[in-house]
Amino acid sequence: MYIRKILVAVALLGLVAGGVFVYHIYTSIFTPNTAFQNEEAYIYVGTGDSFTDVKTQLAPLLKNLSSFEQIARKKGYVSNIKAGRFGIRKGMNNNEIVNSIRSRNIPLTLTFNNQDRLADLAGRISNQIEADSLELIKSFTDGEFLKANNFDEHTALSMYIPNSYEFFWNTSADEFRDRMLKEYKRFWNEERTEKARSLGLKPKEVITLASIVQKETAMPDERPRVAGVYLNRLKKGMPLQADPTVIYAVKRQSGDFDQVIKRVLNRDLVVDSPYNTYRYSGLPPGPISMPDISSIDGVLNAENHDFYYFVADVNNYGYHKFAKTLSQHNRNANEYRDWINKQGINR
């Protein structure tokens, strides 16, 4: 009888202990374990990151890091960590958190616009994906890649069409570059290619001209007219004489791309550079900046007119006065010169 009581007591203790164990397991797996108030938080798991790295990011987001670690180990996550951008929703339990960070890499919208140089583009992109700027610039300037795809150091920037694209955060530098090549080829569809051909230009030449148009006017509705002026000059064999190319030549020669040049001086016009369209006829060897799509399409859909000159319109900010003859242009230019002198702009 005494032994029977002992056995019953042991059994009851076992049931209690088992219940406690089951309850502990249940709460570890299914109890909400988030500590943030926003609807969703993100962690960024880098290529080669360890479980310790993951825990460091999760620590401020979870109520109980130990219970998460227990479930992560039981589900085999510790030895199967994937790089990427992962979301954790408010109220998730440990089981849901592990499932999310091991298999639900969330893409992001990557955006870039008018970067003047490849180095600027690399800096912009490195702030949005895992690849750093040094890896990106090395990829952008890879000689074998450029040669294989008919680009060079002057035209390499042409390949990057500014827009918004969907990428995974853990995209490598080469993966980003290769995707941009595909987007470039997609952008230059049959319609755009045919329009370029009708102008007597190749796609990269269109982009080079578009980069000048972009720098000349910030007004998208004026870009087809400005493009028409330069196309008229090209057809007639006149030098483009585009001030933005001179500014680029000065910056390129000095190596100082951060300097601000608001006024082109006579001494700038003699800078010996293939980008100086006052000294050299035709298009420069590559773009002087990254034109946006409105500038590229502005060239492809340029106005058909008889203008050969233009200068800033002092009475209509942001726009220009266009002229068919040099005498008319000189009158417009003198008006602008008087205005800029009154502003005290010497450089």
Rank of each mutant, 00 (worst) to 15 (best):
P274Y: 09
F140I: 06
P284K: 02
D258K: 12
L15K: 09
I296W: 00
A156E: 08
K215W: 06
K138R: 15
A210E: 03
F322Y: 12
K63R: 04
Y319A: 12
T208Y: 00
I3M: 13
V78I: 05
L157K: 10
K204E: 07
N93M: 00
S100K: 03
G84C: 01
E183W: 02
L231G: 05
K215P: 03
Y165H: 10
S139F: 05
N266T: 08
A11I: 15
S273V: 04
F168K: 15
A131I: 04
G143C: 11
E144F: 10
D313K: 12
D256T: 03
A196V: 08
Q70L: 13
R233M: 08
S67A: 06
S254T: 15
A210N: 03
Q253Y: 05
D152N: 15
G123W: 06
Y230P: 02
G200Q: 07
N38Q: 14
R331Y: 11
P32F: 05
E69H: 01
A17Q: 12
V260A: 07
V20A: 14
V213C: 00
V213E: 00
P107M: 02
K251G: 01
K342E: 11
R252M: 09
L108I: 15
R179C: 11
G318P: 09
K321A: 08
R197A: 14
A11S: 13
S103M: 10
T52N: 09
D49Y: 08
Y309S: 05
N38H: 11
E205K: 11
G91L: 09
R104F: 14
S66H: 09
R267T: 10
K262G: 07
N80F: 01
D338N: 14
K55H: 03
W169Y: 13
Y23T: 09
F176S: 07
D268G: 06
K195L: 13
G87E: 06
L13G: 14
Y280V: 11
A302W: 00
K82Q: 13
P284V: 00
A218L: 10
W169G: 10
K215R: 12
P224C: 02
Q70R: 12
R267V: 12
Q343V: 05
D292R: 02
F322C: 09
N95I: 12
E183S: 07
D53I: 01
P239D: 07
R233Y: 08
K55R: 08
K182S: 14
K75N: 05
T217Q: 05
A72M: 00
N189C: 07
K5D: 11
G84E: 00
F310D: 04
Y165P: 09
I3N: 12
R117A: 07
P224T: 01
Y184Q: 07
S327W: 09
G87L: 07
P274V: 11
S79M: 00
L134I: 12
T34S: 03
N316I: 10
Y2A: 12
